[in-house]
Design a protein around this nucleic acid. Structure first.
Lengths: 345, 345
DNA sequence: CTGTTAGCGCGTTCAA
DNA sequence: TTGAACGCGCTAACAG
């Protein structure tokens, strides 16, 4: 209808009061006469007034906007994470800018810059591969709290929320050992990422703890994808003494390993046990019966958002690193959606 | 460091010019002396100035923010959609507010209101079930363009982008008929949604076209989920004369149907053909060999965003309804990630 | 204690 | 190239 939206002055004029009074009404201030309050409130409704948060932000030089940049929204793990963030953000009366970096540090830099121009109150970042501390430095320096999730970003003045990669790997391998396995492989993932090395470390320590000698060949790196898992499995077939179980870098790798086993006529689950970290969350839909090391991505998103809100409200940036625990879970599909049936360890 | 962020006046003062000049430099206006431009640009860098888009928005009473509200970000279909939107939004220099309604019309109303307060330039909405035209009316009335995707919203002053449910179903059933099937079921989905009835209509028309009488029993409604598919399959087992093929409401249902068949010792694919609309996109990871009616969700997101940008730039709201075509695709997994191998029809 | 006035925050715009 | 006005809501100070 009307081109110009009705502003606080319009309704002030209509009510025969000053704009200050209207502002007080909007804020539910008790300093205003009941009668005037009602008249003003009525006008606000009738004239279809919409609060202009931008103007308020400008005046107060603060906003109720938080930014979230995700390296791959296509991966359900991060979509779920974003949903978790959204939940707490929404209920705190904030809105979220969401951007997808697609693992491109350039795009990530751009969107972070853009969010900064737009005056976000805080940022949650799941960094693209190759992100450096300098990429968030300007933000952090200007006092805007940043929470980095999933991958860590050493040297940056930010808080960090990681899943317990070391502990998860360790308890998964312990579980395999308890099942009687002695020749256990670690499959998939690139060697040069912190996430990967933490998981391998957990794997090693669990073996050591059980007095099992580490066979270097049994750590088979590959792309952290289904295809990577399949090739890792192929490579494994050449060993004289093959493993009887594997901890996989993630669920995608685990499926790939199963694919690779099957094409060599080995039925996974029967004699060969496979466990994967469920980073990719294909598990939710795709797995017939796979043991996974599970992170709850929505929960992680919630925690990240809470961590951020805390800092925003306190007006100061922290630098804590939190680790969210993981669970060993057997998922089962029985002609129906996958349900979590058993929790181990 | 500094509490107050440096503003346009700070650099004006430092450069010994007026803030107007700085503003002109920022806008790349040619009306400014080359020498001053350089001096100003240098100061902008040195003082770490960040453009305050909020202030600009206020002055111009327009923003470069678009809103996107999605009913279920947890569903990869919508996550991909959001990525598609993000691509064109980002490259147009906009940012997006993203909110997840979780199929709750109340939350949807809230977030739409919040986005309106924040001055979005346009909205892309994948409506929660039960959304009514009135839910977007205030927005549409104030001249903010809205593009509704996936589900339609009759009576609202918005543009709409739907996938070709009718045509897709029709060509899927034609395909099954060409394969020699005569007893073809339609399984899954609630009867009372437009999406569902369009698909059933396509199914009917394809049968009619081939002179095959419609068997009312063969339209088996159920929840549009994996569980729903499984129960639909169970129900089908009681028929005296069972179908030999099914078009499923979506891929989740299709998997459920496969689950149900297997638990009755029928191997899907061998003698019983299953086709699903890939709304849920489990197909990408989970399907060994399933024919799907495919929508490209990222592409759809891009089109939606383009449609919206067009209206924003033109400064007027349209009310067109566009239909995006779908493809019949056989996906195959062969010990490696699923690839699209064959395109039919 | 109620209600008002004036000025601020920051970038844009236009007349001068 | 610039001073001044402007967009809209907030707030400190002040008058009734």
């Amino acid at each position: 209808m009307s081109k110009a939206r009705t502003s606080i002055v319009d309704i002030a004029r209509a009510a025969g009061v000053s704009k200050s009074t209207v502002s007080l009404v909007l804020q539910g201030s008790p300093l205003v006469n009941e009668k005037t309050r009602e008249k003003v409130s009525a006008l606000i409704n009738d004239l279809g007034y919409v609060y202009n948060r931008g103007a308020a932000n400008l005046r107060q030089s603060k906003s109720k906007i938080i930014g979230i940049v995700v390296n791959d929204l296509t991966n359900s793990f991060f979509a779920e994470l974003a949903v978790g963030v959204d939940m707490v953000v929404q209920s705190a009366g904030y809105v979220q800018f969401l951007a997808h970096s697609g693992e491109s540090v350039d795009r990530q830099r751009q969107v972070i810059a853009s969010m900064r121009e737009n005056g976000i109150a805080g940022l949650i970042l799941s960094p693209a591969r190759g992100t450096e501390a300098s990429d968030v430095k300007p933000l952090a320096d200007s006092g805007i709290p940043v929470v980095v999730v999933v991958r860590n970003l050493p040297g940056a003045k930010v808080s960090t929320l990681l899943s317990d990669n070391y502990g998860g790997a360790k308890s998964a391998v312990r579980h395999l050992i308890n099942l009687g396995h002695r020749r256990i492989a670690f499959m998939g993932g690139f060697a040069d990422t912190a996430v990967s090395s933490d998981r391998v470390r957990g794997y090693r320590d669990a073996l050591m703890e059980a007095g099992i000698a580490l066979n270097q060949n049994f750590v088979i790196h590959s792309a952290p994808s289904r295809a990577g898992g399949a090739t890792a499995a192929e490579r494994m077939m050449f060993f004289d003494e093959r493993p009887t179980a594997a901890l996989c870098f993630n669920d995608a790798v685990a499926f790939g390993v199963c694919d690779g086993l099957r094409s060599n006529d080995i039925e996974p689950g029967k004699g060969f046990a496979v466990i994967g970290f469920d980073d990719v969350i294909e598990a939710k839909t795709a797995v017939p019966a796979l043991t996974t090391v599970s992170v709850d991505p929505q929960g992680m998103g919630q925690r990240a958002a809470q961590l951020l809100m805390k800092q925003i409200n306190a007006g100061q940036v922290d630098q804590e690193t939190l680790v969210t625990s993981v669970r060993l879970v057997v998922r089962q599909s029985c002609g129906a959606p996958v349900r979590q049936t058993e929790e181990l360890a």
